[in-house]
Write a protein that binds this DNA or RNA. Structure first.
Length: 613
RNA sequence: GCGUUGAUGGUCUAGUGGCUAUGACUUGGGCCUUCCAAGCCCAAAACCCGGGUUCGAAUCCCGGUCGGCGCACCA
């Protein structure tokens, strides 16, 4: 059993992840988040909001998950998100149909599947692998299609990314932020891609959760106002150059920007922010790196693009966040299709005097003569140079027809005007998170199968040669222990080392024994903790040891146990998951104490009295 | 989509053309028990779905679904 299997098995058994539609046999590419999974995911998303919405100030919006066709025509998904595929009848290999006919004709990319099939048949193109014949070509678009309204309705698509919503709302957002760059907006929600063959559990889904942030920046100034915050932060960078050598380097953000490894401050800042977020929710920094897209894999419009990759046991380095400078590509694309200019008017520090040549067609005269064509004629006139206009009879071409305009119908002059600013199409910096993959990364990095000494011995080591000790920040650390000191007899303890900020259960309240005298105070403590807003469970089934292990397995960081001493002096023990050590605290104020442990990074050792084992 | 391989309680698993389908763990109830999956009693719980062959199919055959792996795909 590899780690993936172990984690997925636990996830299924304990209510983190379930296959969707299991009752009916299931369907590939869909997963349910169970009670604990759902909570864990929400908590990850909530921390993401704290980062991007609260700290960075990029407000959250919510757009429909269904989009109308125009949106995806503009974004390129209707045309570009599908490929004509063609399969060999003999060996089953699938090929891009347009690539197959490329050598025998021009503009293969413009043909549809039907035309491609015909060309393949006519030219007798066979499988390059085995020489077999091809099936008919078919379009495979990765977007889910749907119909809006009754009857044939209007063509719609389930969104393949949340980003387009922010682009489509650009004008509204720009006004909301009082037209001052940079500004940003985020969206957390479901996106849909009809993957050909989804696999690898939650790594590739047909319905998945994205958290995307679009920051609209001034293309002329990509310095970051808050750059110093992360300038000296070291990141693991796997740059284009590094990938050639096959090695990543540790480098500060400042150094990387100065050396041109990272294109500019704005991207550098966002890489560091992503690093901060991922490590905060429990991704192991040693299994996290930033990989730069190679020149040929980068979208043609992007200036620079980095993926945050998380190392996973079975899948290797998995892309979980993409951080790209998408330039003005998306806004221009939507401007073109919607026929609406999308820009921000940026005022100069001081107005400039600009001399320019202006043409003013006299519509009062053009109208009666050219009627319906008048508009087109006037547009054509505006394109002419001074020399061309300086004729008694001006010739322009409209709809392929040459027309003559007399000089009294148009005025032109060079004039000097005051210009106080200019229209700027912002460049978009986009950090785009795949929440489901991150969720699995958190699960796997939290997972540990520790081997502990049998029977009542506290953990001192596990079989793969590590021992546990408390670190200064109140977590646990590992240190290698020599092979001859490792225990020979052990039992297995499965622990999810979730950060207490994301753990779906934060405190377990346990009466030592199933006795009424212990149950009553335990229930009262449970209620107190709930009022404080902590995620708490009460459990009195089975022996205390069994309950500790059950909670270890779902990653509950703290367990409060009511024992007989509680009845004498109103104190309880609090057990720390990672080290299985306990300290005794008064019941009075325990809710605040636990809150501080969970949310304020108070060290466990700083409170109460240790309990002798 | 192609090829390949698998599918038995919640989990892991034994098993065979034939009688009431193993076992462990888990779970629920109880007894006992003063802190790390202890013990005892009781209980609940499964042959992926649809066809076919057969007196009889969980087992053999075909198709489907789902999972693993390889190929292709992953703007």
């Amino acid at each position: 059993m590899d780690k993936y299997e172990q984690v997925i098995e636990l996830a299924k058994r304990r209510g983190f992840l379930w296959n969707s539609f299991e009752l009916y046999g299931g369907s590939r590419g869909f997963y349910d988040y169970g009670p604990l999974g759902s909570t864990l995911k929400r908590r990850i998303e909530q921390i993401w909001r704290e980062f991007y919405v609260i700290q960075e100030g990029h407000m959250e919006i919510e757009c429909p998950t269904i989009g109308i066709e125009d949106v995806f025509v503009a974004s390129g998904h209707v045309g570009g998100f599908s490929d004509p595929l063609c399969e060999c009848k003999k060996c089953g290999e699938a090929f891009r149909a347009d690539h197959l006919v490329e050598n025998v004709m021009d503009a293969a990319g413009t043909l549809n599947a039907e035309q491609l099939t015909q060309v393949i048949k006519e030219k007798g193109i066979t499988c390059p692998e085995c020489g077999g014949e091809f099936n008919d070509a078919y379009e495979f678009n990765l977007m889910f299609k749907t119909t809006i309204g009754p009857g044939t309705g209007r063509q719609g698509y389930l969104r393949p990314e949340t980003a387009q919503g922010m682009f489509v709302d650009f004008q509204r957002l720009s006004r909301f932020y009082r037209e001052k760059l940079p500004f940003g907006a985020v969206q957390i929600g479901k996106s849909y891609r009809n993957e050909i063959a989804p696999r690898q559990g939650v790594i590739r889904l047909r319905e998945f959760t994205q958290a995307e942030c679009e920051i609209f920046t001034d293309p002329r100034d990509k310095s970051h106002p808050n750059f110093e915050r992360f300038a000296d932060k070291e990141l693991t960078l796997y740059s284009q150059e590094g990938q050639e050598k096959g090695e990543s380097v540790r480098m500060t953000v400042r150094e990387a920007v100065e050396k041109g490894v990272i294109a500019h401050e704005f991207l550098g800042y966002n890489l560091a922010l992503t690093n901060e977020f991922l490590t905060k929710i429990g991704i192991d920094p040693a299994r996290l790196r930033f990989r730069q897209h190679l020149k040929d894999e980068m979208a043609h419009y992007a200036i620079d693009c980095w993926d945050a990759e998380i190392e996973m046991d079975r899948f290797g380095w998995v892309e979980t966040v993409g951080i790209a400078d998408r330039t003005d590509y998306d806004l221009n694309a939507h401007a073109k299709v919607s026929k609406t200019e999308l820009y921000v008017y940026v005022e100069y520090d001081e107005p400039k005097m600009v001399t320019r040549f202006t043409v003013k067609p006299n519509m009062g005269k053009l109208g009666p003569i050219f009627k319906g064509k008048a508009k087109a004629v006037s547009e054509a006139l505006k394109q002419l140079s001074e020399a061309e206009l300086n004729q008694t009879e001006i010739k322009v071409t409209v709809d392929g027809e040459e027309v003559t305009v007399s000089s009294d119908m148009v005025e032109f002059a060079e004039e000097t005007v005051k210009v106080s600013g200019e229209a700027v199409v912002p460049h978009v910096i986009e950090p785009s998170y795949g929440i489901d993959r991150i969720f699995y990364g958190v699960m796997e990095h939290a997972f540990e199968e520790a081997h502990i000494l049998a029977m009542n011995e506290p953990v001192d080591g596990n079989i793969d040669g590590t021992a546990y000790y408390p670190t200064e920040d109140g977590n646990y650390g590992k240190t290698p222990i020599p092979a001859d000191e490792q225990p020979s007899e052990y039992e297995t303890r499965v622990v999810m080392h979730f950060s207490s900020r994301v753990a779906p259960v934060q405190v377990a309240v346990l009466p030592l024994l199933t006795r009424e005298q212990l149950i009553d105070p335990a229930k009262k403590i449970e209620e107190k903790l709930r009022e404080k807003g902590l995620l708490v469970t009460y459990d009195d089934s089975g022996t205390i040891g069994r309950r500790y292990r059950r909670n270890d397995e779902i990653g509950t960081p703290f367990a409060v146990t009511v024992d007989y001493e509680t009845l004498q002096n109103d104190t309880v023990t609090v057990r720390r998951r990672d080290l299985m050590d306990q300290r005794r605290y008064p019941i009075e104020g325990i809710e605040n104490m636990l809150y501080d442990l969970i949310y304020r990074d108070k060290p466990f050792e700083s409170m109460g009295e240790p309990v002798k084992q």
